[in-house]
Design a protein around this nucleic acid. Structure first.
Length: 442
DNA sequence: TGAAATGTTGGGGCG
DNA sequence: ACGCCCCAACATTTC
């Protein structure tokens, strides 16, 4: 549905539709660039996909609020060009049926999304468009390279990060100019502004959340590799968050960082690596990348899981991280590794439980990276940390939060009797983990 | 993007 | 001067 009758708004003029999904910006957007360079009467569309929304745990999900706010912004920008933003709500295929019924669609443009659900959804939409003889164009805008573009000489996808990274870089040097895909603002369809919809129309409530601003200034980037491991320092760029919703393009981010910081670029390549892995090995969504790791006998103690979720394990760095996550929807990257290791190794809880909790809480949640990093931490993934690499949560705190600045910020009761004793003794848990993993995978 | 256990080396104290 | 012990610091191996 569209919250207002489409038939009243458009005449019989042909429109070219540019469908935004996880690329919520007008600048440097490949699909929008090509649509507005080649056609006039370009109409920008967004669909609140009920297949996705219905799975969210809470009606006050901040990520929906963020999308909603971002759409408001896009609408205002488009209205400056004499156009507006069309927002649908429902199952995407139903919406496209509705569009086809009321609009004279000449062309459809959108950027590819490589997650399994999105691939399936887009297949059903493009089948429909083909049936209706409506031409469509898709682009790789979310990544620098399409998942089938970074392959080994035997034309196989890499499953080890280092090899992927080297090939990615050599491809990049050979093939890529970092283009800025600008729009032709004259070619948006001219319409009166569509009526505003409110977030309650899509059965959500608005959360006033301060979304962290993207940080990519030169002097920040220069210090990135020295500071990034220390959670008390303000050294997170929040690029993951903005890349996830497409409020910055990966090309602009690469352009801003390529000459400044190798370590930072490598992090961006990890993102392309895990997206590529998910594309070629979609079984990772439900299973370990390496099947024998599904033999591990997880303890899956629900009380302990709850303590982990709530930040009550008695290990300050773990608890601080979980509380940061629960409070802000964000967790420092170093701490993510520590809490993930703790859940899988110390508590022997299935990595999928942790993955699901992160998926629910992280504002920057993205299936590919979340899954890839959890499998890395659990030791079950491609190019995973070997299972016997077990983080010591105490040592990690001594190394990366020496003065206790970060843990004290999140655990005010830290040095009082209210703070719990460790849920499990480190040496005991470590040895238990080694035994359980060894039994499963040898 | 780990940590613990084990091995090696070298200096100082001391008989 | 010498051998021996102790221990810290560093290196290597193992989980």
């Amino acid at each position: 549905m569209f919250f207002f009758p489409l038939s009243q708004i458009f005449n019989q003029n042909q429109v070219t539709i540019c469908w935004l999904r996880r690329d919520l910006r007008l600048s440097d957007n490949m699909a929008l660039h090509h649509a507005t360079q080649r056609h006039d009467n370009v109409l920008v569309l967004f669909i609140f996909d009920t297949e996705i929304l219905d799975k969210l745990a809470t009606p006050s999900d901040e990520r929906v609020s963020f999308i909603f706010d971002q759409l408001d912004l896009l609408k205002i920008q488009l209205e400056k060009f004499g156009s507006s933003l069309l927002v649908g709500y429902g199952k995407p295929l139903d919406i496209w049926h509705e569009i086809d019924k009321y609009l004279n669609v000449k062309n459809v443009y959108f950027n590819s999304d490589f997650e399994p659900y999105a691939l399936e959804r887009d297949k059903s939409i493009t089948n429909f468009l083909s049936q209706k003889k409506i031409p469509f164009q898709t682009y790789t805008d979310h990544l620098i390279f399409h998942p089938s573009q970074v392959k080994s000489p035997e034309n196989k996808p890499y499953t080890v990060y280092t090899h992927f990274m080297k090939k990615w870089k050599s491809n990049f040097l050979k093939e890529k100019d970092i283009v800025d895909y600008q729009i032709n603002a004259h070619n948006f369809v001219k319409v009166n502004p569509f009526p505003n919809i409110s977030i309650s129309d899509i059965h959500f409530t608005h959360t006033q959340i301060q979304f962290p601003v993207l940080k990519i200034e030169t002097n920040y980037l220069q210090k990135y590799q020295e500071e990034r491991d220390f959670p008390a320092l303000n050294a997170t760029s929040f690029a993951g968050l903005h890349l996830r919703f497409g409020t910055i393009s990966i090309r602009r981010l690469i352009a801003a960082t390529i000459d400044i910081n190798e370590t930072y670029i490598n992090e961006l390549i990890w993102r392309e690596f895990f997206t590529t892995i998910l594309y070629h090995f979609p079984h990772v969504v439900t299973q370990s990348f390496r099947p024998k790791y599904d033999m591990i006998k997880w303890r899956n103690n629900e009380k302990e899981f709850e303590s982990w979720c709530n930040g009550a394990t008695g290990y300050p760095l773990v608890d601080a991280g979980m509380r940061e996550l629960n409070t802000t929807g964000h967790m420092h990257n170093r701490v993510r590794m520590v809490v993930a290791s703790f859940l899988c190794k110390h508590l022997l809880i299935d990595w999928r439980w942790g993955e699901a909790h992160f998926a629910q809480k992280l504002l920057d949640f993205e299936l590919a990276s979340n899954n890839g990093n959890w499998q890395w931490a659990a030791g079950t993934g491609c190019d995973a940390a070997p299972y016997f690499r077990i983080f010591n949560p105490q040592t990690q705190m001594e190394k990366f939060d020496k003065n206790g600045e970060y843990v004290k910020k999140w655990i005010p009761e830290l040095n009082t009797f209210d703070y719990p004793k460790p849920i499990v003794e480190h040496n005991f848990a470590r040895n238990r983990c080694l035994m359980v993993y060894k039994t499963a995978v040898g």
